[in-house]
Design a protein around this nucleic acid. Sequence first.
DNA 1: CGGAACATTGAGGATACTCAACTACGGTGG
DNA 2: CCACCGTAGTTGAGTATCCTCAATGTTCCG
Lengths: 248, 248
Amino acid sequence: MRSSIRPGYNPLIRKLESIFTLTDDERQALEHLPMQTTAIKEGQDIVREGDRLSRSCLILSGFACTYKTTAQGKRQIVSFVIAGDIPDLQSLHLKVLDNSFSTISPCSVGFVTHDALRDLCTCYPRIASAFWRETLIDAAIFREWVMNVGRRDAYHRMAHILCELMVRMKAAGLAEGHVCDLPITQVEFADALGLTTVHVNRVFQQLRGDGLIVTQGTRLTIPDWDKLREVGEFDPMYLHLEHAEAAA
Amino acid sequence: MRSSIRPGYNPLIRKLESIFTLTDDERQALEHLPMQTTAIKEGQDIVREGDRLSRSCLILSGFACTYKTTAQGKRQIVSFVIAGDIPDLQSLHLKVLDNSFSTISPCSVGFVTHDALRDLCTCYPRIASAFWRETLIDAAIFREWVMNVGRRDAYHRMAHILCELMVRMKAAGLAEGHVCDLPITQVEFADALGLTTVHVNRVFQQLRGDGLIVTQGTRLTIPDWDKLREVGEFDPMYLHLEHAEAAA
DNA sequence: CGGAACATTGAGGATACTCAACTACGGTGG
DNA sequence: CCACCGTAGTTGAGTATCCTCAATGTTCCG
């Protein structure tokens, strides 16, 4: 909802605080984490498959995605990335990136060197654990996506992903009630769900017709959360959120 | 190939040694890691979605898989698990399991308490990093599976997964040349690829007809590796193996 | 020898794709 | 200010991949 960032506001700190209470030392360290902040416009690759990184990228605001490409040039989006996420945190331990990562909307991002992250991890074991945990949650989401793409038809698949996005947006403080601003095009949904744009369009119409979603531009409203959740067989457990504000 | 385990042989140590040279201390610690070893017959659940674990499970020998189930009871296998893998290592940082995990063939497994693992991680940071790294590689494999299921048709999808299995088996020392023993039924391939058994069967026949694979019982032979790799668009990069014995 | 699990086959059908056109909308430049 | 362009969304007709159902063959094991 808020498109401007309060100076000093850091969605990473917000996220970690939802997991455990930071000590003053830990908060200080996070607030003073050396970070090169940059604005990036939409549709820009930030890193590409095969890159070797010496820094990771924290999303401060905006919407992004990680994706892979088949030899035939088909794109598969493997995750949507929102404020507070560090989509290439893995590069701290894996030498070469196995996926690309680009913005969907204009983004504000902060680059943190691996050295700085490693220092943080050695000095503050709880933060190291939290980072590890974050990458484990990413993995849990990938697992869920495998199931979503492998075992649900287009209609249920779309319902599921919309539920996931709403819950994650809510957890990030980017949704009120069951309304949020989702700058994701039908092309991108298609690439995330393993469908064609044409089919995504038809599924959207069906969901709208069934009163499960309302769209006005990029604004998504879910009028009957329980019904959509049921259609999408959505159980937020796999997101491993501490506070079950999720299920709301 | 070897179905019996040398006393003291530990596939986890083997795996870690492929990443970096263990110090004597580290090897000692790993060899004396308290572990409850058990034999489990095929088709047994070891842990289930929703479980809260206080120990993790190291596969010493045999074949297993992790899977999830839709509300309608459809199963999606999200990964195949072989010797040296710790499929529920995530439970060290995530309270509740979001997937089940069962054997495919008879397995020998070792249960290690989270306390023991945590001790190991605090005393030996390089082992902690290696564990983190392992979970990151799992995540990379999930990403690849999302793409495989989302953006490749059944024929290429099957070729891809067979390549992945062969490379992983080889890295674990369980394949010679391009031959290995794969106790995976067509039902399980179907559940892993998001297909039906009937279709998997037809795809297998096509692959056999095209001379890409030869099967004799559970034994899989890949007569023309380069050709299968091309069909499956397989690039082992995402497996993040240290030694590119992979590409062979 | 009988049963169970796995593999195979055929016929018909549904979900999702391809191709191609057309509309709506926002931004840009003349 | 409007024409123009690019992107996103929508629609229709025909098609292909993959599914469902149901039966049959095969292998392994007690």
